[in-house]
Design a protein around this nucleic acid. Structure first.
Lengths: 202, 202
DNA sequence: ATGTAGTTTAACCATTTGGTCAAATTTAGG
DNA sequence: CCTAAATTTGACCAAATGGTTAAACTACAT
């Protein structure tokens, strides 16, 4: 029966992820993380010296998962048009009912932008991906309208993620429940790529 | 020299607004608000019984300002095409360097959706505005593509607000500074209405 | 079995935090 | 001026919070 350090560390990380994601750095409590992991609070400090360090471990895990999902699509063999649909599907499926994940990232980075600077290596892969090459080639060949990659990527991410962040607000404003909201998101899987492509293809 | 209750209350509200907007409910400290207002901490509890009540006062002020800006544009005399441009300009100008305002709203509503339910009256005006009438008429007359108002409004708000929320992240990913970021936002004032209209007009 | 290193726990600690209260100060009316 | 009410303050409190420490427990090699 191996129920030792590796196991405990994993339990802590999973518990901490759950709590930090929902409550954020300032809202999370070490005691709550310990309870969630079913261990003594001191153990948290035994494995991770401080709240800050535990948080950093979690943040980097979440952050490191968020963009690679994009990057792997950015670098696959499909044509750019399909890549866009894949990104939209991916984000809506993955975060449609987990808006707290992108919200967590936006929040913590907004409060403390340095969090990212140490991880900037991961970004380069995105800026220099197949997606970007294909885009630039398409622009030069006259297939695509001239558009800055930053604007295009912002448009895609905005249309996918914002309605997920604003889910409770949208539900209130338009007086709808979960069922209708999910239909709304499903509609967007078609709507967003159409919109992006209609503005990209000459 | 009238330097009495009215004055103090205003000082408190302004200080609380500054602190709550940036730190959020859980991150804000009553002592910090008191210092910011230049008064004793006990006074906060004299004017507003608890942190919760002070927060509620601030939240409602922020929230009540956020949508009416939209609503007044929604109900003016300009044609729908121009209304859209006005909304985009309004939000980018107002929140371009104050992303913490929409972020504050999204956050606090996400954590506590009931915050909005008491204010739902304000929303009706938006759903039943001139904008929506014009949209529906345009759709019926065949001028506009058939699109749900919720999708359209989500698209507009997404494209305006998300890049403002994600400002620090975008700056990191694309390795740009304030100057270039502001140019990016200015570009969007043209880009967004073009994009919305190209997808709306048949 | 036994000693040792690694792991886990309970008991504490110092600081922070939202909140209370009685005393002090200011304001305004008679 | 005097007084009563409203306003403001400093001292204080209990609970919560991140963190420490020494003791207890476990695994395991000898």
């Amino acid at each position: 029966m191996v129920n030792t350090s590796v196991d405990t560390e994993k339990k802590i990380l999973e518990a901490a992820k759950r709590v930090f994601l929902v409550k954020g750095l300032s809202g999370a409590r070490m005691q709550e993380i310990a309870d969630e992991a079913g261990i003594n609070k001191s153990l948290l400090h035994y494995y991770f010296r401080s709240k800050q360090q535990l948080f950093k471990a979690i943040f980097e895990e979440i952050f490191s998962h968020f963009f690679p999902a994009l990057i792997s699509i950015f670098n696959n063999n499909e044509p750019l048009e399909l890549k866009i649909s894949m990104i939209v599907d991916q984000y809506i499926d993955e975060f449609g009912n987990k808006g707290y994940v992108p919200l967590f990232l936006i929040n913590e980075i907004y409060q403390n932008p340095e969090l990212v600077s140490s991880l900037s290596g991961k970004m380069d892969k995105m800026v220099h991906s197949e997606f970007m090459k294909e885009l630039q080639e398409g622009i030069q060949s006259g297939k695509y309208v001239e558009v800055s990659p930053m604007q295009l990527l912002s448009n895609i991410l905005s249309l996918c993620i914002f309605p997920i962040l604003a889910q409770p607000m949208l539900k209130s404003v338009f007086q709808i429940g979960n069922e209708e909201y999910n239909k709304f998101l499903e509609e967007r899987k078609k709507l967003i790529p159409e919109m992006i492509l209609k503005n990209l293809i000459k």
